[in-house]
Write a protein that binds this DNA or RNA. Structure first.
Lengths: 189, 189
DNA sequence: CCACTTGAGCTATTGACATTAGCTAATTGG
DNA sequence: CCAATTAGCTAATGTCAATAGCTCAAGTGG
């Protein structure tokens, strides 16, 4: 029995790669084990079952998305920050469909790490909103609007719901432009 | 063996009720059969397996959502139509989470009924957009924007992603108001 | 360098679920 | 009232997650 040399990180990252593949089938431990050259029950030495695996993927994905958002807004403020962040958000989601879907999963109540990762995303959004002068409940409304727009667009795009023959990039750019104007307007009222 | 008297419609409707329950567990034929007082394999006399059941639910849900949207816009035009339709959309989605999720599933290519049901929703949206003077590619962009906003908001709300303590209704109303203004502005440029 | 401990990976098993095959009896139509 | 249909059944197969218990590979202390 030569050892495969797995670790928690190796297993989780392999799962991430699987769910991000273009024509990914639903994630199964059987398929994951096969890919790692190991029998299915052996995975339990490194993860605590399917739920734990999904949770790990979600926490990591949330932190990564928050990082992508934050980096895209470095040195920018106001509408430019929102635009740049939105473009990065959509790009990352398109490149990592499986992980993106995981970012939407609400944390189990009491799961501190998952909750912290979720808040990380909100924090980045808050900072961007404050750079256009929105605070308090106004900022919350704006963040919800921004998330709804981005999540909705990205999800529908990934699901193939935009069947009509028209340029999707253009639709996104126009939506984004409208959103930026709307939020800016919002800040001055 | 007294007969249970099932039909395709009875089975599908029971499944719809199950997935719309507040704390619905994932749909299984086992649970569905139990609820109908029948053994699991008996369901195959009325449906063609799990995929067929899901497809039926999706087609019916799309048609119902299209109807809800259309009825809410009767006798209205422009911003009022968009607002009314959006409120109904959100309300229906909240009341029927399982069916709503089914409306997003893209049709299998070549499935005429499912494709027709999907287009039904788009058609209603097109008519509303034309009532504010948007046509062609502009209308497509506007429809995508509207769907993204509504779908994103509704999905995040259902998923419990709006954890912050602020009134969700208010956030939706403001987002909607901004959207209406944005689209109207769009129509005149 | 060797005994010892640890634990990675294995086989075997159970239980949930979808699906298919084939039987039986309730229903229906002539 | 008989014959054809078919709703619902039991039995069996295959996939997958999960648990129990074994074994040997790999490090560690002496």
């Amino acid at each position: 029995m030569p050892r495969a040399g797995l670790t928690n990180t190796i297993v989780v990252e392999a799962a991430e790669r699987m769910i991000d593949e273009p024509d990914a089938t639903p994630l199964t431990l059987a398929a994951l084990a096969a890919r790692l050259g190991v029998r299915q029950p052996s995975l339990y030495k490194h993860i605590d079952g399917m739920d734990d695996l999904r949770r790990s993927i979600a926490v990591r994905a949330k932190l990564e998305l928050a990082g992508v958002m934050a980096r895209s807004a470095v040195g920018k403020a106001g509408g430019a920050a929102i635009t740049s962040m939105s473009l990065s958000y959509r790009k990352w989601a398109a490149a990592h469909p499986g992980r993106y879907a995981a970012t939407v999963r609400a944390p189990a109540s009491g799961d501190a790490d998952d909750e912290a990762a979720s808040i990380e995303i909100t924090k980045v959004a808050f900072e961007i909103m404050s750079s256009i002068g929105l605070q308090g409940d106004d900022a919350i409304d704006a963040i919800r609007a921004l998330r709804a727009v981005l999540h909705g667009f990205v999800t529908l795009e990934a699901g193939g719901a935009f069947g009509l023959p028209a340029d999707i990039d253009r639709s996104f750019d126009r939506l984004l432009a409208g959103l930026v104007v709307g939020l800016a307007d919002w800040a001055t009222s």
